[in-house]
Design a protein around this nucleic acid. Structure first.
Length: 724
DNA sequence: AAATAGCCGTA
DNA sequence: GTACGGCTATTTT
C-alpha cells in the first residue's frame, strides 16, 4: 500500500488512562478487535489486540493476548481489557462505533462487559443505504475512501483454511503488522461513520436505523451469545440411525441389476479409453528419437491397466464406482449412456445470471418424480430416498453434531444484513432451514432447552398476507382478517360461492362427504394466496398446484387468479401502483421505511426486468412482515429489561415470522398475555410514526420441551409438571 | 485453493 | 415464483 500511517501503541497503564481520557473527552470510540479464533463463544478463542479511534485520522492500539504484548504476564491483558470496557464500552455518554458491532459485543460479553449507550454500526448503516452486497469494510473503503483502497493484512489464509493453518497464521503475525492493520480498521470505520450518519438522516433512515437495526443488533448479540441447547445423546443416536439408513439405501442401489450392468459397461469403457490414451501417447513418442525409456514406461502402464492395477490417485478416481451424489454422473446414467436408462430429458437447469435455460439436463426432485413412473427398476425411487437421506444427514445430523461445543450448545450467527428485503439470515449453522416434522420428524427434536426451562415459540400467522392487505387497503380481506377468519378457507369459500360457516362445519368433520373436496379447495386457495405475493404466473401456479397433488391446467389456474383479483380489486390496484412507482423511481419502500432499490426495472434483459417488477411487490410484503417480527423481538427485550416480562424469558432464535424463547414454566401464564399485547399490536406509532389501519397481526404461541414437539398454549395447563 | 453449479432445506 | 445458506461435485486458477 505504501501509505504513511501512524498509530499509537499502548504499552503501560498510564497510556491506557490517557486513551480512556481521550475517549471520554471526544465522546466517541471506534473499536475493532483482532482475535485468535473467529467465534468468541469458543472457550479457547481470545482477542490479540484492540484498536481504538477516538477521532478520525488515527488510532491507538491496546495489545492484549498477542505474544508480543506487554500485558501477557499473569493475564494482565484481561484486566486491561476490562478496565477499558468499564470506562469506555459501558460509559453511557460515549458513542461506540464499529463495523459489525454485534460481533464486538460478543467479544465484550466474554469478559463480562455489556456495551451500553449509543451504538453505531457502519455495516448496518451501509446496508440501509444500499442493501446489495458486499457490506464488508474493505469494499466500503474502496468505494468511499479510495485513497486507502487495498489495505490489508498480507498472507491471510483463505476461507477453506484448516484450523491448523489459521492457528499458524494468527499466532505469528508480528505485533507491528497487526497493529497497523487494526488501527486502519478502527480509524477508517470512524471515517465512514462521519458521513454515514449524515446520509442516514438525509435519506430518512435514522429512525429505522436507531429504533430497529441497532436495537435488533443488541437483541441478536444476546441470542448468539446464549446459543441453543442440544440433546447430545439423541444426536449421537441419530448419527447411527442415519448411517444405517444410508448404507442400506446405497446397498440397494448398488445391487440393482440395472446399475450393475451400467457400472460394468462404464468401467469397461473407461478402461478402454485410458488404454487408448496411453497408446496414442506411445505412437506420438515413437516419432521422436531417443524416447525409448518413456515408451517403455507407458507400455508398462498399459499392462498395469489391463491387469486392473492402478497406482495414482487420479487413476483410482477414473475407475471409481458411480457416485450417486454427482448430478453429472446421474445425467450420464439417466439420459445419455446407451448402457443407462436412456430417458428423455424433462427439463434443463437454469442459469441464475441470465435466467435462461442451460444445456445441462436437470436431475432435480421434480424430474425424478416424473421419471419414477417410467422406471420399473426401482432405481429412481431409491435415488430419491438417498438424496433425501444424505441431505438430512450431512446438513442436519452430522452437520449439527460437528458444531456441538463442550457445553452441548450451538451458537449460530444471525445477520441483520443477510438479505435484500430486510429479513434476517442465519449461518454457521443456518437455524432457519431446519426441516419441519412433515419433512423429517426426528431432526427438530435435537433442539432442546436448558434444564428446568421450556421452549416458547411465537408465530405470526399469515403475516405477509396481512401486510399486503394493509398496504393495499383491501377492505374485504381486512374485514375477513378482522373477523378472525381462516383467510385461505375464506378465499376458497368466495371462489366456490359457499357460506364460510357452513364449510367450517364440514372441515370439522372428517367423515363429511365434502370434507376432502374442501380440504383441496382450501389448499388451492392457499397456494394461490402465496402465488399472489410472489406475482406468480398462471403457468407457475398450475405447476405449483399440480406438485401439491391437485392437478390443474394453466387455463384453470388463470381463471383462479382472475377470480382472485376480482374478489380483491384493491390488491390488483396496489400491484399496479408498485409497478408504476418502481418504474418511475427505481425503488420501493415498505411500511417501516425500508428501501429496496431495483435498478433492473430499466434492464435490457427481459427476465431481469420482470423479476424487478415482481420484487417491487414482494420485497415490501416480505420485508414488512419480517420487520414486524424483528420489532417484536426488540420490544420484548425492552419489556424484559423494564421488568414487565419475566427475566427467565430468553430469546434463542428467530425464523422470519417466528421467535423462539426459553422460559421458566412458572412464568408462562404471566408472560403470554403481555407477549400477546406486544406482538399483536406493536407500538409502531410511537417508534416509527406509522400505524397499519384496520389490521392487527395474529400471533400464536406454542410450548414444548424440544423444538420438534410443540403444543399450542393452553391457559389451563400446569406447565410446571412438564419439566419434572 | 477458490469459484461455480446443482440440489435442497426453510419462510 | 420471492428470500436465503449448506453440502457435494466439478471446474477454474
Amino acid at each position: 500500500m505504501g501509505l504513511k500511517y501512524k498509530y499509537k501503541l499502548v504499552t503501560n497503564w498510564s497510556e491506557l488512562h490517557q486513551l480512556v481520557a481521550y475517549c471520554k473527552q471526544t465522546g466517541y470510540a471506534s473499536t475493532d478487535f483482532e482475535t485468535w479464533g473467529t467465534n468468541s463463544m469458543y472457550l479457547r478463542s481470545y482477542p490479540t489486540i484492540l484498536g481504538v479511534s477516538f477521532q478520525p485520522g488515527g488510532a491507538w492500539i491496546i495489545p492484549l493476548a498477542h505474544k508480543e504484548s506487554p500485558f501477557l504476564k499473569d493475564d494482565e491483558w484481561i484486566k486491561v481489557l476490562q478496565y477499558f470496557g468499564r470506562e469506555v464500552i459501558e460509559d453511557l455518554d460515549i458513542v461506540k462505533i464499529g463495523q459489525n458491532i454485534k460481533y464486538e459485543m460478543n467479544w465484550w460479553y466474554k469478559y463480562g462487559i455489556i456495551m451500553q449507550g449509543r451504538v453505531f454500526d457502519t455495516m448496518l448503516a451501509k446496508y440501509l443505504l444500499d442493501e446489495e452486497r458486499p457490506h464488508g469494510l474493505k469494499e466500503m473503503v474502496t468505494r468511499f475512501i479510495p485513497e486507502f483502497d487495498g489495505y490489508d493484512l498480507p498472507g491471510q489464509p483463505g476461507q477453506k483454511a484448516t484450523t491448523e493453518q489459521l492457528i499458524a497464521f494468527w499466532s505469528n503475525v508480528p505485533l507491528d503488522e497487526l497493529a497497523l492493520y487494526c488501527a486502519l480498521d478502527a480509524d477508517l470505520t470512524f471515517r465512514l461513520w462521519v458521513f454515514f450518519e449524515r446520509r442516514l438522516i438525509d435519506n430518512g433512515f435514522y429512525t429505522l436505523f436507531r429504533n430497529m437495526m441497532m436495537m435488533a443488533s443488541r437483541v441478536l448479540a444476546e441470542v448468539e451469545w446464549r446459543g441453543v441447547d442440544m440433546d447430545r445423546d439423541y444426536l449421537n443416536e441419530l448419527v447411527g440411525v442415519y448411517k444405517i439408513k444410508i448404507d442400506e439405501c446405497e446397498a440397494r442401489i448398488r445391487t440393482n441389476p440395472i446399475i450393475f450392468k451400467y457400472e460394468r459397461a462404464r468401467l469397461k469403457d473407461v478402461k478402454k479409453q485410458m488404454i487408448n490414451d496411453v497408446k496414442a501417447e506411445i505412437l506420438l513418442l515413437k516419432q521422436t528419437e531417443g524416447s525409448d525409456r518413456m515408451i517403455k514406461s507407458r507400455e508398462e502402464k498399459v499392462s498395469r491397466y489391463i491387469a486392473g492395477d492402478y497406482t495414482t490417485k487420479k487413476e483410482w478416481e477414473m475407475v471409481a464406482p458411480t457416485n450417486f451424489n454427482s448430478s453429472k454422473q446421474m445425467i450420464d446414467f439417466l439420459f445419455e449412456s446407451p448402457e443407462g436408462l436412456m430417458f428423455d430429458v424433462i427439463k434443463f437447469t437454469q442459469d441464475k445470471n441470465t435466467k435462461k435455460e442451460t444445456e445441462t439436463p436437470s436431475t432435480d426432485e421434480d424430474v425424478l418424480n416424473e421419471l419414477q413412473y417410467k422406471d420399473d427398476s426401482g432405481f429412481i425411487k431409491d435415488l430419491l430416498e438417498l438424496r433425501g437421506l444424505t441431505k438430512l444427514n450431512s446438513t442436519y445430523v452430522v452437520g449439527m453434531w460437528e458444531r456441538l461445543n463442550s457445553k452441548n450448545k450451538i451458537h449460530a450467527s444471525f445477520l441483520l444484513h443477510g438479505t435484500v428485503t430486510g429479513r434476517l439470515s442465519s449461518r454457521n449453522p443456518n437455524l432457519q432451514n431446519i426441516p419441519r416434522d412433515t419433512t423429517a420428524s426426528d431432526i427438530k427434536k435435537m433442539f432442546i432447552t436448558s434444564p428446568g426451562k421450556l421452549l416458547l415459540q411465537i408465530d405470526y400467522s399469515q403475516a405477509e398476507l396481512r401486510i399486503l392487505a394493509a398496504a393495499a387497503k383491501e377492505p374485504t380481506m381486512i374485514q375477513w382478517f378482522k373477523e378472525g377468519k381462516d383467510i385461505h378457507l375464506a378465499v376458497a369459500c368466495k371462489k366456490f360461492n359457499t357460506d364460510y360457516d357452513k364449510v367450517k362445519v364440514i372441515l370439522d368433520n372428517e367423515d363429511h362427504s365434502e370434507y376432502i373436496e374442501w380440504k383441496k379447495r382450501r389448499k388451492k386457495a392457499k397456494t394461490t394466496n402465496f402465488g399472489i405475493v410472489y406475482e406468480q404466473s398462471a403457468k407457475g401456479l398450475a405447476e405449483a398446484l399440480t406438485k401439491e397433488g391437485i392437478f390443474t391446467t394453466v387455463n384453470e389456474a388463470e381463471e383462479f387468479l382472475n377470480d382472485w383479483f376480482d374478489d380483491f380489486p384493491k390488491v390488483r390496484k396496489y400491484i399496479d401502483n408498485q409497478h408504476r412507482f418502481v418504474k418511475k423511481y427505481g425503488f420501493v419502500y415498505n411500511l417501516f421505511g425500508r428501501k429496496r432499490r431495483l435498478p433492473n426495472v430499466d434492464s435490457n434483459n427481459w427476465g431481469k426486468k420482470a423479476e424487478a417488477f415482481r420484487q417491487s411487490v414482494n420485497a415490501p410484503t416480505q420485508g414488512g412482515a419480517s420487520d414486524f417480527t424483528l420489532f417484536s423481538s426488540v420490544l420484548i427485550r425492552e419489556h424484559i429489561r423494564r421488568g414487565i416480562l419475566p427475566s427467565s424469558l430468553e430469546q434463542v432464535g428467530t425464523v422470519h415470522d417466528s421467535l423462539l424463547y426459553y422460559i421458566n414454566p412458572q412464568d408462562i401464564h404471566q408472560a403470554i398475555p403481555k407477549l400477546y399485547q406486544i406482538c399483536r399490536n406493536p407500538e409502531t406509532k410511537l417508534w416509527f410514526n406509522f400505524e397499519i389501519k384496520g389490521i392487527e397481526m395474529k400471533v400464536e404461541f406454542e410450548i414444548g420441551k424440544n423444538w420438534g414437539e410443540l403444543h399450542g398454549y393452553n391457559p389451563q395447563e400446569n406447565y410446571l409438571v412438564w419439566v419434572a
